[in-house]
Design a binder for these strands. Structure first.
Lengths: 107, 107
DNA sequence: CCAATTCATATCCATCTGGTTATGAATCAA
DNA sequence: TTGATTCATAACCAGATGGATATGAATTGG
């Protein structure tokens, strides 16, 4: 469990952040204003969440004049799926071991 | 984003809980004492984490005399991978739309 | 140039969170 | 039965977290 993985999990723990990320995945790039209009919280709060999402690599922001357009980076979710896969893998391999053991006991 | 999903994300946000869950996936059932011996925190702290993991469906505990053996339930991770898959799916479908649009403009 | 817009940052605050110690309930061993 | 073991729960505390408001910097339009 690396440090970056921990940041990823922590960042996704908040429903507001997941909401912002999901919206960017669904509907593509958005300005802070557009995101704020649907978030139900203040603009500074949205900006703070976006900063955290950015730090976790989940979004990227590029400045366009006085606006900032944010976009989702779903590739950043890969470590999440990888980790879940490993957990299930450990589980199944232990299950396999048990099966081999039972097979041996059967003989 | 359902309520259960939110609980799952929140529960996995803590590195100690992920560690406990990972250990149960890797090495199978463990008593609270065995888990405490490797966790680096007090037994009550471990019990509290286990209670949260249980509430999220990630582990199950069965009482055996004065011990409690906990086991991992990796199936509970499914909503996590599902959500990640949906996010990537949204992304890709938007990308497809853009491609079709560009294709049309090419004609 | 000046006013308005857009966003980020600073500051502050209530609440949540993860840890501790203390304690109690249940089980086992002698 | 009595004392030890194992775990869960209660009470408490320091620090993190998510929110608000205030403000400033940068850009744009008139």
């Amino acid at each position: 469990m690396t440090d970056a993985d921990d940041l990823l999990f922590r960042t996704l723990a908040d429903p507001t952040r997941r909401g912002l990320f999901e919206r960017l995945c669904r509907e593509g790039d958005q300005t802070v204003g557009a995101l704020t209009a649907h978030a139900g919280i203040s603009q500074p709060a949205v900006s703070k969440h976006l900063a955290l999402l950015k730090q976790a690599g989940l979004v990227a922001g590029r400045s366009q004049g006085r606006q900032t357009r944010y976009s989702a980076r779903p590739e950043a979710l890969a470590p999440l799926s990888d980790w879940a896969g490993r957990m299930t893998g450990f589980w199944e391999s232990r299950f396999d071991d048990l099966e081999t053991l039972l097979d041996r006991m059967d003989q």
